[in-house]
Amino acid sequence: MIVYGIRSCDTCRKARRWLDDRDLDHDWVDLREDGVTTADLRRWLKAVGPDALVNRRSTTWRQLAKAERPAMQASAVLPVLQAHPTLVKRPVFERGDEVRVGFSANVRDWLERS
């Protein structure tokens, strides 16, 4: 499993601690430090859609001028996410072909299933 997030994000720290407490093996990718590829973004957009992937409650979103805020279509969102990877809702969990975003009870249940 690969977990994408930002080291300073409270939710990401909580998720990583939760994974470690359960000995769930995972690789960590920091979106801010390591960046994110266009292929990753496209895969996530296809799997969960722009409404789930874009964090419209983030500081980055609020700092964007209204004209810069994309319509919630994958084609419009992709370049904005490339320019501002902190707009990705975090953490992103990728296991095989499956992708989950956020750290809700549903995601935790999915993570515990082998």
Rank of each mutant, 00 (worst) to 15 (best):
V92H: 01
P50I: 00
D25G: 14
W110Y: 12
T86E: 01
H84T: 03
R90C: 03
N106E: 12
W18R: 13
T37P: 15
R113D: 05
L78D: 03
D23A: 15
F93M: 12
V77M: 01
P50D: 10
Y4A: 08
V107Q: 07
V48C: 03
P79G: 05
R32G: 02
A15I: 13
L31Q: 02
D10E: 10
T38M: 03
L31V: 06
R113G: 07
R7F: 00
D109K: 14
M1C: 09
W44I: 04
F93T: 09
R90Q: 05
T59W: 02
N55R: 09
R113C: 00
R42K: 12
Y4L: 10
T59M: 03
W110Q: 11
E33I: 15
V36H: 06
A74Q: 10
L24Q: 13
W61H: 10
W110K: 07
R56F: 09
L24V: 15
L53F: 10
V29Q: 10
R113K: 04
G5L: 02
A74R: 08
D27K: 13
P70L: 00
M1Q: 07
A52P: 15
S114L: 08
R22N: 11
G49C: 08
S58Y: 00
R17I: 03
V80R: 04
A67K: 14
V80N: 04
E33F: 14
R22D: 09
R42Y: 01
K89R: 10
K66N: 15
F103C: 12
V107S: 07
V77E: 00
R56N: 13
W28F: 14
T38H: 07
W110T: 11
N55P: 09
D97Q: 11
C9R: 06
T38P: 05
R100Q: 14
A83L: 05
W61E: 11
V101Y: 04
S114E: 05
P50W: 00
C9P: 02
H26Y: 14
D10T: 08
V54Q: 02
S58C: 05
W61C: 03
A71T: 13
W110A: 13
R13Q: 10
W28E: 08
A105H: 11
A15M: 12
A105R: 11
